[in-house]
Simulated assay, not measured.
Amino acid sequence: MTVKEQQECKFPPCISNWKNAKGYTIPLDKRLATDGRGLQTVQVNENVAKLAEALYIADQKACEAVEMRAQVERKMAQKEKRKHEEKLREVA
């Protein structure tokens, strides 16, 4: 880069709004009051509620599927155990 390009790309240093010109720290509530953020009302999109409900339903279905899978695995393990015991009885 040339010197001219470097000077054009030079950004001014950040001015912190944490302190005023005399160097005193400004409390957070005072900064927010002057900023105007506290005056704005937060609007939540109605799709957020739909998304939350869809995620809840999906979570419930996933839990049910996991539970059903665990039950099937338990039943299969019991059947295998019974078969193994029967084979041992036949051998004895």
Rank of each mutant, 00 (worst) to 15 (best):
C63I: 13
V44N: 13
R69H: 07
E46A: 08
M76V: 10
Q71Y: 05
E64T: 06
K79E: 10
N45C: 03
K61I: 01
A54T: 03
R69D: 09
K50N: 05
M76N: 09
E67T: 00
V42T: 08
T41D: 04
A54V: 02
V48F: 03
K81F: 15
K79N: 10
V42I: 08
A52Y: 10
A49T: 05
L55E: 11
Q71W: 05
N45W: 01
D59G: 09
A62W: 02
A58N: 03
L51M: 07
A70T: 15
K50V: 01
A77W: 10
E80C: 15
Q71E: 06
E67R: 00
D59S: 12
A58V: 00
E46K: 09
K50T: 02
I57E: 11
E67A: 00
N47R: 07
E73F: 11
M68W: 11
N47S: 11
V48Q: 04
A62H: 04
V44Q: 12
K61D: 02
Q43A: 09
E64M: 06
A54S: 08
M68K: 13
V44C: 13
M76I: 11
R69Y: 08
A65M: 10
D59K: 10
K61R: 08
A52M: 14
M68C: 15
Q71T: 06
R74Y: 09
K61F: 01
Y56L: 01
E53G: 00
E73C: 10
A62K: 04
C63Q: 12
L55M: 09
K79W: 10
K75P: 09
N45H: 05
Y56H: 00
Y56K: 01
A77V: 11
E53T: 01
V66C: 13
Q71M: 06
D59N: 14
E53R: 00
A58M: 02
E80V: 13
R74K: 13
E73I: 11
A49Y: 04
Q71G: 02
Q43S: 14
A49H: 03
K75V: 12
V72E: 14
K79H: 08
